[in-house]
Write a protein that binds this DNA or RNA. Sequence first.
DNA 1: ATACCATGTTAGCGAACGATGACAATTGCA
DNA 2: TGCAATTGTCATCGTTCGCTAACATGGTAT
Lengths: 101, 101
Amino acid sequence: MILRTSTDIGNLVRDRRKGRGWTQADLAKRLGVSRLWIVQLEQGKDTAQVGLVLRALNELDVPVQVDLQSAASMRSGTSYREIPFVDIDNIIREATGPIKR
Amino acid sequence: MILRTSTDIGNLVRDRRKGRGWTQADLAKRLGVSRLWIVQLEQGKDTAQVGLVLRALNELDVPVQVDLQSAASMRSGTSYREIPFVDIDNIIREATGPIKR
DNA sequence: ATACCATGTTAGCGAACGATGACAATTGCA
DNA sequence: TGCAATTGTCATCGTTCGCTAACATGGTAT
């Protein structure tokens, strides 16, 4: 699922919150924000502070990720990053065994 | 790549902007924000308005997505990750300074 | 019907945003 | 080295955030 607007975020937050059986007051208390802020976030308020939004998504176990492979700046021809990609998860896995998820 | 904090977003924005050869003023003009706002965003300002941040990422062709499958599995497991998260990009950045392009 | 709970709305207030403009510091190139 | 472009910092100002408190609305069960 791709997030383009604050409305997308609002819908996602509401779904995830309800999926856990939490009230707006529950989530607000966990985040240390007011219930009013949760109401407005779920309504798609686009002036909400990004730090609070990220904390909300983290609290709801929603990993926010970007796929730079499909991103468009690779078009330019010049290489985006001269340092080779390193998958730290694989390195850790080989050293210590499987990562619990 | 997973975005957890505003610092992650700041680093990403800076990398993508430079990858396109844009100045801060260029990006600011495209977004209709001040250059100061771009400076602070790239510095990881966590009080930036989420709507503007999403517009910045869209302008830089960075698709923001969530993987609800892994989110569900994270919830069911006893612990999400026993090994501390390591951001290899930040390690490289701090060790080498800005990446030349 | 009514008691209860969750959600939505409004008003007022202190705090902080984002803008502008100017200047300093840094980077890159001839 | 020296110059120009880019980036970082600061002060000020109008606007708006997020908070608290109170009240309204909607759904549910007894």
